[in-house]
Design a protein around this nucleic acid. Structure first.
Lengths: 252, 252
DNA sequence: CCAAAAGTGTTGAAGTTACACCCATGC
DNA sequence: GCATGGGTGTAACTTCAACACTTTTGG
């Protein structure tokens, strides 16, 4: 695996194909996404925020490229990753501010490049800002407050949200966004944030518990100004099972 | 639209990106797929069957490229088309027979190319074989009998089947595979072929009828050696409605 | 003692599954 | 008249949606 990576990195860039990553997080209140701010000085105009991404290497597997981008930006490995799809509208680099920026970072800034988008789920506290070759800074933004992004990244974000929405109805991947120990209310809010609609508290709890995917710990919340909540962790075995097979009937 | 196409065709090829199309049909018995046979003479060895596909043009929208490939092969326009995803395993052109073939049709046969797969649904009788620049012959194959294809096309076919399976549970796109006038049994067999499992006849009929997506014609089947079946057509308006919104609860 | 979120059951409606027999036609 | 697929209803069960009050803690 290490050997392979080394070999890959010696290869040339493929000037026509990039990957972009929609990295979702959850701050226990709402869904967030990791964006890079490409503003190099205060006078830069245009849209500043973009999804992390980069050209792929010749002979690099697309999935590998996404893993690499993720690793370069966050230092994280083994995280949940899924392809959203390919985006190939030739207008995607038509904004002036986007072209300017490309000139500063790419050898062939005018090449027409299609991009393959991925979304990934990480536990927010695991992310520690990392020196990155392609952006000065990266930071979390609340998904629901984003109105525009560079290139076609807003469109990609919408597609990733939609994919996540569909996926979470079928597989219990939401746990990748939560800490090891979590409360049912946190899980509840997570589902509401992703599905963008309210879910009945009692019905939600019942449904989750019937899946037998979580075990209650002996531990409780401490220091909260209200009745402390039971803490849970999810059952690894059952998680694998449901992640592979999915459930047919999870009609949120 | 015509002007745009002309402009596109003047552009150069993007040597690193192709599209491949999984064109599904239904022969009223089972699901089929349109494959090209690249065997130029009897002595060619290796796997002969492949999905139709081709490189895209610089500045050509991916979706446009898929529409173009489809049109070149079948002469059909305005057909149901959906992206399956991007496939970028560098090993995808590693088979010797595949490389040989590429040498005969591509300017840069060794270029590493990622491909974006689409699936589309057509009414089998609409397809009339067409002279095509990239294959002598094309023909229908029964999906369930396919064991191997050129490149990574078998993997792509599996992904397309899976996507279709998921999609048909949520949107009534199956009608694109049927003639204008069809029987409930034909629709029933179609769903069974796609989902690859038996569905109870009575329950299936009830479920479909409740959707109010079909209207029964005054006409009946003729010349069949058994009780003639009622013919139906689907309601365009309601179809559009369900195709856009989907249905949440269609738990086959 | 007040504010805040945790936790808990029941009921009526809707949907799902399983299942067997008669019917209309061509040959 | 027989082989073939078309067409139909019901009952048991499961799932879903809606809904309100008590509990425990910190301040």
């Amino acid at each position: 695996m290490n050997k392979e990576l080394k070999k890959v990195n010696k290869n040339a860039l493929n000037p026509n194909v990039s990957v972009d990553c929609v990295i979702f997080g959850f701050d226990l209140e709402k869904l967030t996404v990791l964006l890079i701010d490409r503003c190099r000085n205060k006078r830069d105009k245009g849209i500043k925020l973009a999804l992390p991404g980069n050209l792929i290497y010749t002979n690099e597997h697309l999935d590998q490229a996404a893993i690499r981008v993720l690793d370069e930006l966050t230092g994280l490995k083994n995280i949940y990753l899924e392809q959203v799809g390919a985006f190939g509208n030739p207008d995607r680099i038509s904004k002036d501010s986007d072209r300017e920026w490309l000139k500063s970072i790419r050898a062939e800034p005018e090449a027409s490049v299609i991009t393959v988008a991925y979304f990934s789920l990480i536990k927010m506290p695991d992310y520690l800002p990392q020196a990155s070759s392609f952006a000065k800074t990266a930071g979390w933004a609340s998904v629901s407050e984003i109105n525009e992004l560079a290139f076609d990244h807003f469109e990609i974000l919408q597609a990733a949200k939609e994919k996540l929405k569909q996926k979470i109805k079928i597989q219990p991947i939401g746990f990748n966004l939560l800490p090891e120990k979590f409360t049912l209310s946190q899980l509840h809010r997570l589902y509401e944030s992703i599905l963008e609609k309210p879910l009945d508290k009692r019905n939600f709890r019942r449904k989750i518990q019937k899946l037998e995917i979580i075990t209650s710990l002996k531990e409780k919340q401490r220091g909260v100004p209200h009745k402390p909540s039971q803490l849970f962790e999810f059952k690894e075995v059952r998680y694998q099972e449901l992640t592979q097979n999915g459930f047919d009937n999870f009609g949120f």
